[in-house]
Design a protein around this nucleic acid. Structure first.
Lengths: 219, 219
DNA sequence: GCCTTTCTGTTGTAAAAACAACCGACTTTC
DNA sequence: GAAAGTCGGTTGTTTTTACAACAGAAAGGC
Protein backbone atom coordinates (compact mmCIF):
# COMPACT_ATOMS: atom_id res chain seq x y z
CA UNK A 1 0.00 0.00 0.00
CA UNK A 2 2.83 2.30 0.83
CA UNK A 3 3.60 2.92 -2.85
CA UNK A 4 0.39 4.91 -3.16
CA UNK A 5 1.18 7.47 -0.50
CA UNK A 6 2.69 9.95 -3.01
CA UNK A 7 -0.44 9.66 -5.16
CA UNK A 8 -2.84 9.90 -2.25
CA UNK A 9 -0.95 12.86 -0.91
CA UNK A 10 -1.79 14.73 -4.10
CA UNK A 11 -5.47 13.75 -3.93
CA UNK A 12 -8.00 16.27 -2.70
CA UNK A 13 -9.14 13.94 0.04
CA UNK A 14 -5.75 13.91 1.72
CA UNK A 15 -4.78 17.45 0.85
CA UNK A 16 -2.92 18.99 3.78
CA UNK A 17 -2.24 15.65 5.48
CA UNK A 18 1.35 14.63 6.16
CA UNK A 19 2.87 11.38 4.83
CA UNK A 20 3.09 9.75 8.23
CA UNK A 21 -0.53 10.69 8.95
CA UNK A 22 -1.67 9.16 5.66
CA UNK A 23 0.30 6.09 6.51
CA UNK A 24 -1.39 5.69 9.87
CA UNK A 25 -4.81 6.37 8.34
CA UNK A 26 -4.30 3.67 5.75
CA UNK A 27 -3.70 1.01 8.31
CA UNK A 28 -6.33 2.41 10.67
CA UNK A 29 -8.96 2.38 7.93
CA UNK A 30 -7.92 -0.96 6.48
CA UNK A 31 -7.25 0.54 3.07
CA UNK A 32 -6.97 -1.90 0.22
CA UNK A 33 -5.91 -1.66 -3.37
CA UNK A 34 -6.80 -3.25 -6.68
CA UNK A 35 -5.84 -2.93 -10.33
CA UNK A 36 -8.23 -3.08 -13.27
CA UNK A 37 -7.55 -3.73 -16.94
CA UNK A 38 -8.97 -1.47 -19.61
CA UNK A 39 -12.65 -2.26 -20.11
CA UNK A 40 -13.06 -3.95 -16.73
CA UNK A 41 -15.81 -2.86 -14.37
CA UNK A 42 -14.74 -1.35 -11.07
CA UNK A 43 -18.31 -1.17 -9.80
CA UNK A 44 -21.57 -2.50 -11.18
CA UNK A 45 -24.98 -0.97 -11.09
CA UNK A 46 -27.13 -2.46 -8.32
CA UNK A 47 -24.20 -3.30 -6.06
CA UNK A 48 -23.98 -2.10 -2.48
CA UNK A 49 -20.96 -0.10 -1.48
CA UNK A 50 -19.40 0.37 1.92
CA UNK A 51 -16.07 1.92 1.00
CA UNK A 52 -15.00 5.15 -0.53
CA UNK A 53 -12.75 4.78 -3.53
CA UNK A 54 -9.92 6.93 -4.82
CA UNK A 55 -8.47 6.52 -8.29
CA UNK A 56 -4.70 6.20 -8.02
CA UNK A 57 -3.96 5.88 -11.71
CA UNK A 58 -5.77 5.47 -15.01
CA UNK A 59 -9.12 6.80 -16.06
CA UNK A 60 -12.68 5.77 -15.26
CA UNK A 61 -16.13 6.44 -16.64
CA UNK A 62 -19.29 6.43 -14.58
CA UNK A 63 -21.79 5.12 -17.06
CA UNK A 64 -24.99 3.32 -17.75
CA UNK A 65 -26.04 1.06 -20.62
CA UNK A 66 -29.69 0.40 -21.31
CA UNK A 67 -31.32 -2.68 -22.83
CA UNK A 68 -30.74 -1.42 -26.33
CA UNK A 69 -27.07 -0.70 -25.79
CA UNK A 70 -27.45 3.05 -25.56
CA UNK A 71 -24.72 4.26 -23.28
CA UNK A 72 -24.99 7.28 -21.06
CA UNK A 73 -21.81 8.66 -19.49
CA UNK A 74 -22.46 10.39 -16.20
CA UNK A 75 -18.94 11.56 -15.61
CA UNK A 76 -15.27 10.90 -15.86
CA UNK A 77 -12.83 10.19 -13.03
CA UNK A 78 -9.22 11.38 -13.16
CA UNK A 79 -6.38 10.28 -10.87
CA UNK A 80 -6.69 11.63 -7.34
CA UNK A 81 -10.46 11.85 -7.58
CA UNK A 82 -12.74 10.19 -5.09
CA UNK A 83 -15.81 8.25 -6.17
CA UNK A 84 -18.59 6.14 -4.73
CA UNK A 85 -18.81 8.43 -1.72
CA UNK A 86 -22.47 9.26 -2.20
CA UNK A 87 -23.52 5.64 -1.79
CA UNK A 88 -21.74 4.62 1.38
CA UNK A 89 -24.18 6.50 3.61
CA UNK A 90 -27.30 4.78 2.41
CA UNK A 91 -27.98 1.30 3.70
CA UNK A 92 -30.84 0.78 1.32
CA UNK A 93 -29.72 2.31 -1.94
CA UNK A 94 -27.66 0.49 -4.47
CA UNK A 95 -25.39 1.95 -7.12
CA UNK A 96 -27.21 3.63 -9.97
CA UNK A 97 -24.38 3.31 -12.49
CA UNK A 98 -21.48 1.18 -13.58
CA UNK A 99 -17.94 2.42 -13.18
CA UNK A 100 -15.65 1.15 -15.94
CA UNK A 101 -11.91 1.43 -16.51
CA UNK A 102 -11.28 3.36 -19.73
CA UNK A 103 -7.56 2.65 -19.44
CA UNK A 104 -5.68 0.30 -17.10
CA UNK A 105 -6.34 1.69 -13.64
CA UNK A 106 -5.52 1.36 -9.97
CA UNK A 107 -8.03 2.03 -7.20
CA UNK A 108 -7.54 2.47 -3.46
CA UNK A 109 -10.53 1.84 -1.22
CA UNK A 110 -11.18 2.38 2.46
CA UNK A 111 -13.97 2.56 4.91
CA UNK A 112 -14.73 6.23 5.31
CA UNK A 113 -17.55 5.55 7.69
CA UNK A 114 -14.84 5.05 10.27
CA UNK A 115 -13.55 8.54 9.65
CA UNK A 116 -16.98 9.86 10.45
CA UNK A 117 -18.09 7.52 13.20
CA UNK A 118 -15.07 7.00 15.38
CA UNK A 119 -14.82 9.57 18.06
CA UNK A 120 -11.11 10.02 17.47
CA UNK A 121 -11.84 13.36 15.89
CA UNK A 122 -9.24 14.81 18.17
CA UNK A 123 -6.51 13.73 15.76
CA UNK A 124 -5.53 16.46 13.41
CA UNK A 125 -5.94 14.35 10.31
CA UNK A 126 -9.47 13.35 11.13
CA UNK A 127 -10.55 16.96 11.18
CA UNK A 128 -8.74 17.71 7.94
CA UNK A 129 -9.99 14.64 6.12
CA UNK A 130 -13.57 15.31 7.17
CA UNK A 131 -13.26 18.81 5.79
CA UNK A 132 -11.68 17.54 2.60
CA UNK A 133 -14.42 14.97 2.28
CA UNK A 134 -17.04 17.66 2.58
CA UNK A 135 -15.24 19.86 0.06
CA UNK A 136 -14.87 17.11 -2.47
CA UNK A 137 -18.42 15.86 -2.19
CA UNK A 138 -19.56 19.47 -2.60
CA UNK A 139 -17.44 19.78 -5.68
CA UNK A 140 -18.92 16.60 -7.08
CA UNK A 141 -22.29 18.08 -6.38
CA UNK A 142 -21.48 21.22 -8.33
CA UNK A 143 -20.15 19.07 -11.17
CA UNK A 144 -23.48 17.27 -11.36
CA UNK A 145 -25.36 20.57 -11.28
CA UNK A 146 -23.22 21.87 -14.13
CA UNK A 147 -23.86 18.71 -16.08
CA UNK A 148 -27.59 19.12 -15.53
CA UNK A 149 -27.07 22.61 -16.95
CA UNK A 150 -25.75 21.18 -20.22
CA UNK A 151 -28.37 18.50 -20.38
CA UNK A 152 -31.26 20.85 -19.78
CA UNK A 153 -30.46 22.68 -23.00
CA UNK A 154 -32.94 21.83 -25.71
CA UNK A 155 -30.75 21.59 -28.80
CA UNK A 156 -27.51 19.76 -29.49
CA UNK A 157 -25.83 23.05 -30.39
CA UNK A 158 -26.78 24.64 -27.08
CA UNK A 159 -25.58 21.57 -25.21
CA UNK A 160 -22.26 21.72 -27.00
CA UNK A 161 -21.83 25.45 -26.45
CA UNK A 162 -22.58 25.25 -22.74
CA UNK A 163 -20.27 22.27 -22.28
CA UNK A 164 -17.41 23.71 -24.31
CA UNK A 165 -17.71 27.14 -22.67
CA UNK A 166 -17.49 25.51 -19.28
CA UNK A 167 -14.37 23.62 -20.32
CA UNK A 168 -12.74 26.80 -21.65
CA UNK A 169 -13.55 28.53 -18.36
CA UNK A 170 -12.25 25.61 -16.32
CA UNK A 171 -9.00 25.42 -18.25
CA UNK A 172 -8.69 29.19 -18.45
CA UNK A 173 -8.14 29.27 -22.18
CA UNK A 174 -10.18 29.50 -25.37
CA UNK A 175 -8.14 26.54 -26.56
CA UNK A 176 -8.42 23.31 -24.63
CA UNK A 177 -8.64 19.53 -24.79
CA UNK A 178 -11.57 17.47 -23.63
CA UNK A 179 -11.30 14.01 -22.05
CA UNK A 180 -13.72 12.42 -24.54
CA UNK A 181 -13.71 11.24 -28.13
CA UNK A 182 -16.78 11.92 -30.28
CA UNK A 183 -18.77 8.86 -29.22
CA UNK A 184 -17.99 9.50 -25.56
CA UNK A 185 -18.93 13.16 -25.80
CA UNK A 186 -22.21 12.20 -27.45
CA UNK A 187 -22.86 9.67 -24.67
CA UNK A 188 -21.98 12.31 -22.10
CA UNK A 189 -24.40 14.84 -23.56
CA UNK A 190 -27.01 12.17 -24.38
CA UNK A 191 -27.22 12.91 -28.08
CA UNK A 192 -26.62 10.94 -31.25
CA UNK A 193 -22.99 10.86 -32.32
CA UNK A 194 -23.51 11.48 -36.00
CA UNK A 195 -25.97 14.28 -35.39
CA UNK A 196 -23.52 15.83 -32.95
CA UNK A 197 -20.63 15.46 -35.36
CA UNK A 198 -22.76 17.18 -37.94
CA UNK A 199 -23.65 19.99 -35.58
CA UNK A 200 -19.98 20.52 -34.64
CA UNK A 201 -19.12 20.99 -38.30
CA UNK A 202 -21.98 23.44 -38.75
CA UNK A 203 -20.71 25.38 -35.76
CA UNK A 204 -17.27 25.47 -37.32
CA UNK A 205 -18.77 26.68 -40.62
CA UNK A 206 -20.65 29.35 -38.68
CA UNK A 207 -17.33 30.56 -37.28
CA UNK A 208 -18.11 29.65 -33.67
CA UNK A 209 -15.41 27.09 -33.01
CA UNK A 210 -12.37 25.32 -34.35
CA UNK A 211 -11.45 21.74 -33.52
CA UNK A 212 -9.21 18.84 -34.32
CA UNK A 213 -9.79 15.53 -32.61
CA UNK A 214 -10.38 16.30 -28.95
CA UNK A 215 -8.85 19.76 -29.06
CA UNK A 216 -11.25 22.71 -29.37
CA UNK A 217 -10.92 26.46 -29.73
CA UNK A 218 -13.76 28.89 -29.07
CA UNK A 219 -13.85 31.97 -31.30
CA UNK B 1 -35.34 31.68 16.62
CA UNK B 2 -36.55 29.36 19.34
CA UNK B 3 -39.84 28.79 17.53
CA UNK B 4 -38.01 26.82 14.86
CA UNK B 5 -36.50 24.24 17.15
CA UNK B 6 -39.39 21.77 16.66
CA UNK B 7 -39.00 22.10 12.88
CA UNK B 8 -35.22 21.85 12.91
CA UNK B 9 -35.43 18.86 15.18
CA UNK B 10 -37.33 17.04 12.45
CA UNK B 11 -34.83 18.05 9.78
CA UNK B 12 -32.27 15.53 8.60
CA UNK B 13 -29.43 17.83 9.51
CA UNK B 14 -30.34 17.82 13.19
CA UNK B 15 -31.64 14.30 13.33
CA UNK B 16 -30.62 12.71 16.61
CA UNK B 17 -29.73 16.00 18.27
CA UNK B 18 -31.51 16.99 21.48
CA UNK B 19 -33.51 20.24 21.82
CA UNK B 20 -31.05 21.84 24.18
CA UNK B 21 -28.18 20.90 21.88
CA UNK B 22 -29.94 22.49 18.90
CA UNK B 23 -30.56 25.54 21.01
CA UNK B 24 -26.89 25.92 21.87
CA UNK B 25 -25.87 25.25 18.26
CA UNK B 26 -28.17 27.98 17.01
CA UNK B 27 -26.57 30.61 19.18
CA UNK B 28 -23.09 29.20 18.65
CA UNK B 29 -23.48 29.28 14.87
CA UNK B 30 -25.23 32.63 14.79
CA UNK B 31 -28.28 31.17 13.07
CA UNK B 32 -30.65 33.64 11.50
CA UNK B 33 -34.06 33.41 9.97
CA UNK B 34 -36.02 35.05 7.17
CA UNK B 35 -39.41 34.77 5.55
CA UNK B 36 -40.12 34.96 1.83
CA UNK B 37 -43.34 35.67 -0.01
CA UNK B 38 -44.50 33.43 -2.85
CA UNK B 39 -42.50 34.27 -5.97
CA UNK B 40 -39.63 35.92 -4.09
CA UNK B 41 -36.07 34.81 -4.68
CA UNK B 42 -34.24 33.27 -1.75
CA UNK B 43 -30.97 33.08 -3.67
CA UNK B 44 -29.92 34.46 -7.02
CA UNK B 45 -27.63 32.94 -9.59
CA UNK B 46 -24.15 34.43 -9.42
CA UNK B 47 -24.30 35.23 -5.71
CA UNK B 48 -21.73 33.99 -3.27
CA UNK B 49 -22.91 31.95 -0.33
CA UNK B 50 -21.32 31.45 3.05
CA UNK B 51 -24.18 29.87 4.99
CA UNK B 52 -26.05 26.66 4.79
CA UNK B 53 -29.81 27.03 4.58
CA UNK B 54 -32.62 24.88 5.88
CA UNK B 55 -36.21 25.31 4.73
CA UNK B 56 -38.43 25.62 7.80
CA UNK B 57 -41.73 25.96 5.98
CA UNK B 58 -43.08 26.43 2.48
CA UNK B 59 -41.73 25.14 -0.78
CA UNK B 60 -38.81 26.19 -2.96
CA UNK B 61 -37.64 25.53 -6.49
CA UNK B 62 -34.01 25.55 -7.58
CA UNK B 63 -34.30 26.92 -11.08
CA UNK B 64 -32.74 28.74 -13.96
CA UNK B 65 -34.26 31.05 -16.57
CA UNK B 66 -32.43 31.73 -19.80
CA UNK B 67 -32.52 34.86 -21.98
CA UNK B 68 -35.59 33.66 -23.80
CA UNK B 69 -37.54 32.88 -20.67
CA UNK B 70 -37.14 29.12 -20.85
CA UNK B 71 -37.15 27.86 -17.33
CA UNK B 72 -35.29 24.81 -16.13
CA UNK B 73 -36.14 23.38 -12.71
CA UNK B 74 -33.22 21.62 -11.11
CA UNK B 75 -35.05 20.44 -8.05
CA UNK B 76 -37.60 21.07 -5.39
CA UNK B 77 -37.01 21.74 -1.70
CA UNK B 78 -39.46 20.53 0.96
CA UNK B 79 -39.55 21.58 4.63
CA UNK B 80 -36.65 20.20 6.66
CA UNK B 81 -34.40 19.99 3.62
CA UNK B 82 -31.02 21.64 3.50
CA UNK B 83 -29.86 23.62 0.49
CA UNK B 84 -26.96 25.74 -0.69
CA UNK B 85 -24.52 23.40 1.07
CA UNK B 86 -22.53 22.60 -2.07
CA UNK B 87 -21.52 26.23 -2.54
CA UNK B 88 -20.24 27.20 0.88
CA UNK B 89 -16.98 25.32 0.43
CA UNK B 90 -15.89 27.09 -2.72
CA UNK B 91 -14.45 30.56 -2.36
CA UNK B 92 -14.42 31.12 -6.09
CA UNK B 93 -17.62 29.60 -7.37
CA UNK B 94 -20.88 31.45 -7.38
CA UNK B 95 -24.37 29.99 -7.38
CA UNK B 96 -25.38 28.35 -10.63
CA UNK B 97 -29.13 28.68 -10.08
CA UNK B 98 -31.83 30.80 -8.54
CA UNK B 99 -33.81 29.54 -5.59
CA UNK B 100 -37.39 30.82 -5.62
CA UNK B 101 -40.24 30.53 -3.12
CA UNK B 102 -43.12 28.63 -4.76
CA UNK B 103 -45.29 29.32 -1.71
CA UNK B 104 -44.70 31.62 1.27
CA UNK B 105 -41.64 30.20 2.97
CA UNK B 106 -39.37 30.48 5.98
CA UNK B 107 -35.65 29.79 5.84
CA UNK B 108 -33.10 29.31 8.62
CA UNK B 109 -29.46 29.95 7.81
CA UNK B 110 -26.23 29.34 9.67
CA UNK B 111 -22.56 29.15 9.11
CA UNK B 112 -21.78 25.48 8.77
CA UNK B 113 -18.12 26.15 8.14
CA UNK B 114 -17.89 26.61 11.87
CA UNK B 115 -19.21 23.11 12.43
CA UNK B 116 -16.39 21.81 10.29
CA UNK B 117 -13.56 24.12 11.22
CA UNK B 118 -13.81 24.53 14.97
CA UNK B 119 -11.92 21.90 16.86
CA UNK B 120 -14.77 21.44 19.29
CA UNK B 121 -15.58 18.11 17.67
CA UNK B 122 -15.52 16.65 21.12
CA UNK B 123 -19.11 17.80 21.66
CA UNK B 124 -21.58 15.12 20.87
CA UNK B 125 -23.65 17.27 18.57
CA UNK B 126 -20.75 18.26 16.41
CA UNK B 127 -20.03 14.68 15.57
CA UNK B 128 -23.67 13.96 14.86
CA UNK B 129 -24.24 17.06 12.76
CA UNK B 130 -21.14 16.39 10.69
CA UNK B 131 -22.42 12.89 10.00
CA UNK B 132 -25.87 14.22 9.17
CA UNK B 133 -24.33 16.80 6.89
CA UNK B 134 -22.44 14.12 5.05
CA UNK B 135 -25.52 11.93 4.77
CA UNK B 136 -27.69 14.71 3.46
CA UNK B 137 -25.19 15.98 0.93
CA UNK B 138 -24.78 12.39 -0.24
CA UNK B 139 -28.50 12.09 -0.61
CA UNK B 140 -28.60 15.31 -2.59
CA UNK B 141 -25.89 13.86 -4.76
CA UNK B 142 -27.90 10.72 -5.43
CA UNK B 143 -30.91 12.88 -6.21
CA UNK B 144 -28.91 14.70 -8.88
CA UNK B 145 -27.66 11.41 -10.30
CA UNK B 146 -31.22 10.13 -10.49
CA UNK B 147 -32.28 13.32 -12.23
CA UNK B 148 -29.46 12.91 -14.72
CA UNK B 149 -30.89 9.45 -15.29
CA UNK B 150 -34.24 10.90 -16.36
CA UNK B 151 -32.65 13.60 -18.44
CA UNK B 152 -30.34 11.25 -20.30
CA UNK B 153 -33.32 9.46 -21.81
CA UNK B 154 -33.79 10.37 -25.43
CA UNK B 155 -37.57 10.63 -25.74
CA UNK B 156 -40.19 12.43 -23.67
CA UNK B 157 -41.96 9.15 -23.02
CA UNK B 158 -38.83 7.53 -21.62
CA UNK B 159 -38.14 10.55 -19.47
CA UNK B 160 -41.65 10.41 -18.07
CA UNK B 161 -41.52 6.66 -17.45
CA UNK B 162 -38.21 6.84 -15.62
CA UNK B 163 -39.33 9.79 -13.52
CA UNK B 164 -42.74 8.35 -12.67
CA UNK B 165 -41.30 4.90 -11.88
CA UNK B 166 -38.85 6.49 -9.50
CA UNK B 167 -41.64 8.37 -7.75
CA UNK B 168 -43.70 5.20 -7.42
CA UNK B 169 -40.69 3.44 -5.92
CA UNK B 170 -39.96 6.31 -3.58
CA UNK B 171 -43.53 6.51 -2.35
CA UNK B 172 -43.89 2.75 -2.29
CA UNK B 173 -47.09 2.70 -4.27
CA UNK B 174 -48.21 2.51 -7.89
CA UNK B 175 -50.44 5.47 -7.06
CA UNK B 176 -48.77 8.68 -6.00
CA UNK B 177 -48.74 12.46 -6.18
CA UNK B 178 -45.94 14.51 -7.67
CA UNK B 179 -44.88 17.95 -6.40
CA UNK B 180 -45.23 19.59 -9.83
CA UNK B 181 -47.98 20.80 -12.12
CA UNK B 182 -47.64 20.18 -15.86
CA UNK B 183 -45.57 23.24 -16.63
CA UNK B 184 -43.25 22.57 -13.70
CA UNK B 185 -42.84 18.91 -14.63
CA UNK B 186 -41.99 19.94 -18.18
CA UNK B 187 -39.43 22.44 -16.86
CA UNK B 188 -38.04 19.76 -14.58
CA UNK B 189 -37.61 17.26 -17.42
CA UNK B 190 -36.56 19.95 -19.90
CA UNK B 191 -39.26 19.26 -22.45
CA UNK B 192 -42.06 21.27 -23.96
CA UNK B 193 -45.19 21.35 -21.86
CA UNK B 194 -47.72 20.78 -24.64
CA UNK B 195 -45.66 17.99 -26.18
CA UNK B 196 -45.37 16.38 -22.77
CA UNK B 197 -49.07 16.76 -22.10
CA UNK B 198 -49.70 15.11 -25.42
CA UNK B 199 -47.33 12.27 -24.64
CA UNK B 200 -48.95 11.69 -21.24
CA UNK B 201 -52.31 11.26 -22.92
CA UNK B 202 -50.86 8.83 -25.45
CA UNK B 203 -49.37 6.86 -22.59
CA UNK B 204 -52.78 6.76 -20.95
CA UNK B 205 -54.34 5.61 -24.25
CA UNK B 206 -51.67 2.93 -24.48
CA UNK B 207 -52.73 1.68 -21.05
CA UNK B 208 -49.47 2.53 -19.32
CA UNK B 209 -50.68 5.06 -16.79
CA UNK B 210 -53.67 6.84 -15.29
CA UNK B 211 -53.59 10.38 -14.01
CA UNK B 212 -55.63 13.26 -12.77
CA UNK B 213 -53.93 16.57 -12.07
CA UNK B 214 -50.75 15.76 -10.15
CA UNK B 215 -51.86 12.27 -9.12
CA UNK B 216 -50.56 9.36 -11.19
CA UNK B 217 -51.07 5.60 -11.23
CA UNK B 218 -48.74 3.19 -13.01
CA UNK B 219 -50.39 0.16 -14.56
C1' DG C 1 -72.68 34.68 -8.92
C1' DC C 2 -69.49 36.45 -12.29
C1' DC C 3 -65.07 37.64 -13.86
C1' DT C 4 -60.31 36.66 -14.15
C1' DT C 5 -56.55 33.76 -13.99
C1' DT C 6 -54.42 29.44 -14.10
C1' DC C 7 -54.11 24.94 -15.64
C1' DT C 8 -54.45 21.17 -18.94
C1' DG C 9 -55.27 19.15 -23.28
C1' DT C 10 -55.56 19.50 -28.52
C1' DT C 11 -54.06 20.36 -33.12
C1' DG C 12 -51.11 21.57 -37.06
C1' DT C 13 -46.69 23.03 -38.69
C1' DA C 14 -41.86 23.71 -38.67
C1' DA C 15 -37.57 22.42 -36.81
C1' DA C 16 -34.49 19.27 -34.89
C1' DA C 17 -32.84 14.92 -33.57
C1' DA C 18 -32.45 9.99 -34.12
C1' DC C 19 -31.28 6.38 -36.98
C1' DA C 20 -28.96 3.88 -40.51
C1' DA C 21 -25.70 3.29 -43.84
C1' DC C 22 -21.52 4.44 -45.77
C1' DC C 23 -16.69 6.47 -46.62
C1' DG C 24 -12.05 7.68 -45.93
C1' DA C 25 -8.22 8.45 -42.68
C1' DC C 26 -5.60 6.75 -39.26
C1' DT C 27 -3.99 2.87 -35.79
C1' DT C 28 -3.06 -1.36 -34.26
C1' DT C 29 -1.88 -6.05 -34.75
C1' DC C 30 0.29 -9.99 -36.40
C1' DG D 1 2.74 -4.49 -45.08
C1' DA D 2 -1.84 -6.39 -45.34
C1' DA D 3 -5.98 -6.87 -42.59
C1' DA D 4 -8.89 -5.50 -39.03
C1' DG D 5 -10.45 -2.16 -36.10
C1' DT D 6 -11.30 2.59 -34.54
C1' DC D 7 -12.58 7.18 -35.31
C1' DG D 8 -14.70 11.17 -37.32
C1' DG D 9 -17.51 12.98 -40.88
C1' DT D 10 -21.43 12.88 -44.48
C1' DT D 11 -25.96 12.09 -46.29
C1' DG D 12 -30.90 10.89 -46.63
C1' DT D 13 -34.99 9.29 -44.24
C1' DT D 14 -37.97 8.77 -40.38
C1' DT D 15 -39.34 9.97 -35.94
C1' DT D 16 -39.77 13.09 -32.35
C1' DT D 17 -39.90 17.50 -30.43
C1' DA D 18 -40.64 22.40 -30.24
C1' DC D 19 -43.54 26.07 -31.11
C1' DA D 20 -47.75 28.56 -31.56
C1' DA D 21 -52.39 29.18 -31.08
C1' DC D 22 -56.57 27.93 -29.13
C1' DA D 23 -60.32 25.89 -26.11
C1' DG D 24 -62.49 24.03 -22.16
C1' DA D 25 -62.17 23.04 -17.12
C1' DA D 26 -60.95 24.33 -12.62
C1' DA D 27 -59.65 27.60 -9.08
C1' DG D 28 -59.56 31.99 -6.94
C1' DG D 29 -61.06 36.79 -6.06
C1' DC D 30 -64.53 40.17 -5.27
Amino acid sequence: MEQFIPILKKSKLFSGVRDDEISSMLSCLGASFREYKKGEFVLRQGERLSSILVLAEGNLHIQNDDYWGNRSILGEISPGEMFGEAFVTSESETLLNDVAAVTDSAVVSFDVKRVLTTCSSACRFHTIVVQNLFCEISEKNRKLVRKLGYMSKRTTREKLISYLSEQAKKQNSASFSIPFNRQQLADFLSVDRSAMSNELCKMRDDGLILFERNRFTLL
